[in-house]
Design a protein around this nucleic acid. Structure first.
Lengths: 338, 338
DNA sequence: CTGTCAATCCAAAACGTTTTGGTTTTTAAA
DNA sequence: TTTAAAAACCAAAACGTTTTGGATTGACAG
């Protein structure tokens, strides 16, 4: 269980540990012949400098930490993109799965990482304040915040909401509905953009035309079922805060005899893989997760290198036109077939 | 940028660093009053023991490393399941994304983790040998290997292949096809089980009835298109080494006028989410990724605690019956409609 | 022969902990 | 009041590195 240390290599090579250190880290104070002997020996003995020993001296770990609660789905795509950018710059990406904001904070305070990328709902203002005091380079992906060494990289979800409104209006729709997500940055901003742009176009969205979706298929489905049961007139253009809830809507609507997109158009958001295989295929907004991952990693590295103070970066989304949206039907409100 | 150390806390509390260490780690040699004062001070100063400093002394990091090349999709689900099991036992899970087997080896040799879970195609026999010498507790997820402190946790893919053969035979099929995956453990074993069980039932699968699928939708689709173009008679029961290639097959078949499952039954493997939303919905084998993740984490912890020597564990899969398989048609070989 | 310089090597300090083996202080018993 | 035991505290060593500031050569010029 005891692993090879620099001392073992030094003894085997008959030199001091200083010389071994120099030889292996490319220092200049060592004879070519000696260097080769040490290199060969180190390889033979499977020597690798201890992470802790080295970092204790260096105060630099060479690792960037991605702090999250989960890693499946969305997060995985993000992490893969970050990883590429990190390796390009000679950093290693560690995905650190933490249950609570406190665990994230502890990990950061224990000086394990050179920089942190944070998307963890448990990380609150209290933690942010401490983070700022540590002056550790950090990037948020789920809130709009910047300070000395802290940046944010975000989707421009306000604009996404605007684009959604423009797209549906462009198809001729005048009666709308919004399927609300959760109160995250993206959820709030998508909603704000959608409402704002509609208002600019002189359209007002009454509160009964906003359904709870919770970013979740089942929740959206249940909400839509209730709306249908209420007998209220059905709008023709629906914007759902994410693809999952859009699919929930479609399930409820088709079950009630509505045709998508002939009677009702539904626009999702996120461009999940499922959307292109679903029937009808889902018209949606593509948010560029990989781009965001790459930008976040690059921003972290820039902060570590002290290239600029903290700032806020936003990436835009584009429409993916598929089969769930069509021109508005001639009659004002949609009605189920049969 | 300089962070609080135990020395700072000691000075602020007017005691020695020894006392601070004892107070914060629950040692007994400290007065209640002093302990409370130190605890309050440490919290105020955002003190957290340095990871490197602590581990240098302890030779114990409290982290389990999951080494992989990617983290999206399959890997993410696995990691989430592992994380739960790790936290239950007081370990932290770090997903370490490495491009090469050498990087994995370096990370392990640098003594950063107490145990390693490895699923990295770049990790070869050469690395395995070194790993064995280090005596670091490790678990493989992608090969059948066990030794002193090394275990494997795997799907029982041989049995999965057998089950696939049994299921299709049970539906009355006699003419089969296999869509080959890659030459990974699972790819090879699924194939071996399928062929073996067919042979036991007196059925021989000629080589032209094995198509390249490469675990990939497009590859499978192209292979199937070529097979159709060849004019060879179409078998009625197809087992694809994974769901992606099963979907590729369905695309090619329906495009050529075959009906699934009326003319041809297709059985996938993995139970990806898409399968239940696809049309036709995909009959498949559910492999229990989460279970495997949990088992792998628990096995790693057991090895760390020295509870038993390395061993091999396999988890079984179950059939998920949906819409892509049906009883064999009456005629011997399937033919396209129109 | 002496002095200088470059090349090669090394001892020791420092990084932040934990732990060992004390020492000092307090308490309780005699 | 003295003594023994218990409680509270601390100095120093150790963990594995890197780095600083010499020390030791040998060659070469003066």
């Amino acid at each position: 269980m005891r692993r090879t240390t620099i001392k073992d290599v030094a003894k085997a090579a008959g030199v001091s540990i200083t010389t071994v250190s120099h030889a292996l880290s490319g220092g200049s104070d060592v004879k070519q012949e000696t260097r080769e002997r040490i290199e060969k020996l180190a390889a033979q003995m499977n020597y690798m400098p201890s992470f802790s020993g080295r970092n204790l001296k260096n105060a630099r770990t060479g690792v960037i930490g991605l702090y999250s609660r989960y890693i499946r789905g969305f997060y995985g795509v993000l992490a893969d993109a970050m990883c590429d950018a990190c390796q390009q710059a000679g950093f290693e990406l560690d995905v650190i799965l933490a249950e609570s904001g406190d665990m994230v904070m502890s990990s950061i305070l224990s000086k394990r990482v050179d920089g942190a990328i944070i998307l963890h709902s448990g990380f609150g203002d209290r933690h942010t304040e401490v983070l700022r005091e540590t002056e550790l380079p950090a990037v948020f992906l789920d809130r709009e915040f910047s300070a000395g060494r802290i940046s944010s990289v975000l989707f421009d979800s306000y604009k996404t909401g605007c684009q959604a409104a423009d797209y549906l209006c462009g198809l001729g729709h005048r009666e709308f509905m919004f399927i609300k997500g959760q109160d995250t940055y993206d959820g709030v901003e998508r909603r704000r953009g959608f409402y704002q742009r509609l208002r600019e176009r002189g359209i007002d969205l009454p509160s009964e035309r906003e359904l709870e979706g919770a970013f979740d298929r089942t929740t959206a489905q249940r909400s839509m079922e209730r709306f249908i049961a209420s007998g209220a007139p059905m709008p023709t253009g629906i914007f759902a805060a994410n693809d999952d809830s859009a699919i929930g809507c479609i399930l409820a609507l088709t079950a009630a005899g509505y045709r998508v997109p002939e009677d009702v158009s539904i626009l999702g958001c996120d461009n999940i893989e499922l959307g292109q295989w679903y029937t009808p295929s889902l018209t949606t907004m593509k948010t560029g997760i990989s781009t965001m991952g790459r930008l976040a990693a690059q921003e972290t590295i820039a902060l570590i290198n002290g290239e600029h103070p903290g700032r806020i970066t936003k990436t835009e989304s584009t429409i993916v036109e598929r089969g769930s949206c069509a021109g508005a039907p001639l009659s004002e409100a949609a009605a189920p077939v049969g």
